[in-house]
Each structure stands twice: as structure tokens, then as C-alpha cells.
């Protein structure tokens, strides 16, 4: 716990953004460990994969594009500090009105949660309550969140892919920044580093198998579509980082990703529509099979699959967009000189 605060303070004070990113990853990972001790295994899983894995990659991808040094003048800001302290003081005061930590009769535990805990084993038949609440009781919610991820993926593509059109005119031989150190992360895939190549070749299949296990075992143990999607994407990102973006594109190309992003959401929505056509409510899985529990099982499986596909594809789309950006700029800057700076 105190490690968290130390980490956060270090993030605040460190000038180099690269170091700050690494520290943020450490904070995330510590947080994941704390989540385990707080019984939230699913959340810890997600936090470790997302916070310490994907988000670090994304931050580094950004830093490669924007430079990693913060400007020297790091002034002490009394105004914001005062606001922060005021907010903190109010919240601190409010904690005394909070129920005690860890008591079973706290208001959070007495509203809908007992219903989930007592009835979900018989109604849904899925041991992992987090999964059953996620995909069944709060299916609408999760559908909305999947759509948010979908939208964010599309948004990143729109923002970072604007000069896509001209790409076809330029021949793609020898991108100048492909020197394998700094400069461009699309040059990261180096042909000389034997150890990362061998290790990642060994690791990637296991990561995929693990992701599939997490995906389909999510009903019984910690896991589910969100985690599996992130792990799967992490596997491909590892491959891309070690072998170069072009190889990864050969495995999963961008058209397929665009297709998969929408396929996941459509699969989720489709399950809802099918259950409506069969006479139930939207996302009411009981009607999917003659036995309601089996129907729930099937529905959850399909919905989680939809979530997993969308998350994988969206993460990959975001990653490709960030990493593919330098190439895009090189190709376009042959036509228009100096893409920055023309505004001033």
C-alpha cells in the first residue's frame, strides 16, 4: 500500500517520461497484487494485463512519437496543490461517515449483491459469479462497454490514420527510420537479437493457449472475454515488437482487424437479437436452449467470445495505429515537407 504511494509520488516527480511510464506500470502491478488480497481475482488479472502490459506499451509507443523529455521548468504550483488538498480534506472528512472496511453488513453488501451470490449458482449455473453478473445480469452494461471499446478503437484509427490514402502511391521499399534503435518503434524488429527471437517464439504459442483458456474457462475460474482479449492482443504485440510490425501484419492484417472489431460487437448484439426472436427479452439467454441453465451457459459463452474478439481487435488496432504512424509520416512527408511546425 505504502509502496503504491511511493510509486505514485515518484511518477509525479520524475522528469523523464519514459521512467514515469515504467513507474506507472509498477504501480499498476502493485495494485493488481492488492486486488488479489482483496479477493478480486478477475480484476487483478485484468489490471495486471492491461495496466502493467498494454498501457505501458501504448505509453512507450506515444513517447517514441513525441519525445520523452519533459520540459525542465517544473514549477511548484500552489493553486492546484491547494485545490487538491481541499478535495483530499473533504474526502478524508467523508471517510468518517463511511461504513467500516470489511464488515459484512455494509450497505454495499445488502442491496443486490446477496441476490447475485445466492441465486446465480442455480439460475446461471456458472461458478464464477463475476462472469455471471458481467455477462448475464448486467449484460446491457457490458454491451455498452464493449461498444465504448469499439468506438475508442475506431476513434484512434480515425485520428492516427488520416493520411492513409496516399500510402498506395508511394513504394514501400526501405523505410528510412528502420535502424532498430530509438527513432522509430516500427524499426524495433531487429534481425540480430537472437535471444528475444527464440524466447518470444517459445512464448507466443503459450500466451495464445493461455488466452484461449482464460476465454473459455472464464465461467469456472477467474477470466473472461476482457482478460482473454487483452492477453491475446499482448501475444501478438510481443510478436510485433520482436519480429517487426510487418511480420505481425502478415499474421493479422488490418482489414481483418477492422472486420473483427465489428464482428465482436455484432456477435454480442446478435445473441441479444436471437434471444428476442426466440421470444425472450433482449440478452435474455434462458430461451437459447430448452434448459434455461444451459441457455444461460451458451449465451454467456457467446457473449464473452464477442467481448474477447472486440477487445483483441481494438487493442491491436490501437497498437498498429500507434506503431504504424511513423511510416505514414515518412511516406507523406516526401510530398509535403515538414508535417509539424506549419501552424506557427
Amino acid at each position: 500500500m505504502l509502496l503504491l504511494i511511493a510509486g505514485a509520488l515518484a511518477v509525479l516527480s520524475v522528469r523523464n517520461l519514459f521512467v514515469a511510464t515504467m513507474l506507472l506500470g509498477i504501480v499498476s502491478f502493485t495494485m493488481a497484487l492488492i486486488f488479489i488480497s482483496l479477493d478480486a481475482v478477475d480484476v487483478a488479472f485484468t489490471e495486471a494485463a492491461v495496466g502493467a502490459g498494454i498501457s505501458t506499451v501504448l505509453y512507450i509507443g506515444t513517447l517514441a512519437l513525441v519525445g520523452s523529455q519533459e520540459r525542465e521548468k517544473s514549477k511548484f504550483a500552489p493553486g492546484p496543490l491547494a485545490v487538491c488538498l481541499a478535495v483530499g480534506a473533504v474526502l478524508y472528512y467523508a471517510t468518517y461517515e463511511m461504513p467500516r472496511y470489511g464488515q459484512p453488513d455494509n450497505p454495499v453488501h445488502t442491496h443486490v449483491a446477496p441476490r447475485y451470490i445466492e441465486d446465480s449458482p442455480t439460475e446461471i449455473g456458472v461458478p464464477n459469479m463475476v462472469t455471471s453478473v458481467l455477462a448475464s445480469y448486467r449484460g446491457y452494461d457490458t454491451f455498452g462497454e464493449t461498444t465504448v471499446i469499439f468506438t475508442a478503437g475506431i476513434g484512434v484509427l480515425l485520428i492516427l490514420r488520416q493520411r492513409r490514402r496516399r500510402k498506395k502511391e508511394v513504394t514501400t521499399e526501405d523505410p528510412p527510420l528502420r535502424d532498430g534503435k530509438g527513432g522509430s518503434i516500427s524499426g524495433l524488429g531487429s534481425a540480430h537479437d537472437l535471444v528475444p527471437h527464440v524466447i518470444s517464439k517459445l512464448l507466443v504459442p503459450f500466451i495464445f493457449v493461455f488466452a484461449l483458456y482464460v476465454q473459455f474457462h472464464g465461467d469456472y475460474g477467474p477470466g473472461g472475454g476482457f482478460q482473454a482479449g487483452v492477453i491475446f492482443a499482448a501475444g501478438i504485440i510481443l510478436y510485433a515488437l520482436v519480429f517487426g510490425l510487418d511480420f505481425a501484419r502478415a499474421v493479422v492484417n488490418e482489414k481483418a482487424i477492422l472486420f473483427l472489431i465489428s464482428a465482436g460487437v455484432l456477435l454480442y448484439g446478435g445473441v441479444g437479437v436471437v434471444s428476442m426472436l426466440l421470444g425472450g427479452n433482449f440478452l435474455d439467454y434462458n430461451v437459447l436452449s430448452s434448459d434455461p441453465v444451459a441457455g444461460q451457459h451458451l449465451g454467456i459463452l457467446l457473449v464473452e467470445l464477442g467481448v474477447g474478439i472486440t477487445v483483441t481487435a481494438a487493442m491491436l488496432a490501437i497498437f498498429y495505429a500507434f506503431v504504424g504512424r511513423p511510416e505514414l509520416l515518412i511516406e507523406t512527408s516526401t510530398n509535403a515537407e515538414q508535417p509539424g511546425k506549419e501552424r506557427n
Binding site: 482483496l38 479477493d39 478480486a40 478477475d42 480484476v43 485484468t46 489490471e47 492491461v50 495496466g51 498494454i54 498501457s55 501504448l58 505509453y59 509507443g61 506515444t62 454495499v108 453488501h109 443486490v112 449483491a113 447475485y116 451470490i117 459469479m129 463475476v130 453478473v133 458481467l134 448486467r138 452494461d141 457490458t142 462497454e145 465504448v148 471499446i149 475508442a152 478503437g153 476513434g155 484512434v156 485520428i159 492516427l160 473472461g224 476482457f226 482479449g229 487483452v230 477487445v311 481494438a314 487493442m315 490501437i318 495505429a321 500507434f322
Partner: peptide
């Protein structure tokens, strides 16, 4: 059992959070 409801909310929030962070970074 600990309360599963906050877990569900946060689990989705983490993934949505990374998606929106990516949007901000872009």
C-alpha cells in the same frame, strides 16, 4: 464471498479506461 458487483464494474472500467487512454494518447 466478497461482493462480486464492484469487481464486475471495475473489470469493465479497466478495459474501457485503457481504450479511452489510447484515444487521449492518439
Amino acid at each position: 464471498y466478497s461482493n462480486p458487483l464492484p469487481h464486475v464494474l471495475i473489470l469493465t472500467a479497466i478495459v474501457v479506461g485503457i481504450a479511452t487512454t489510447a484515444l487521449g494518447l492518439s
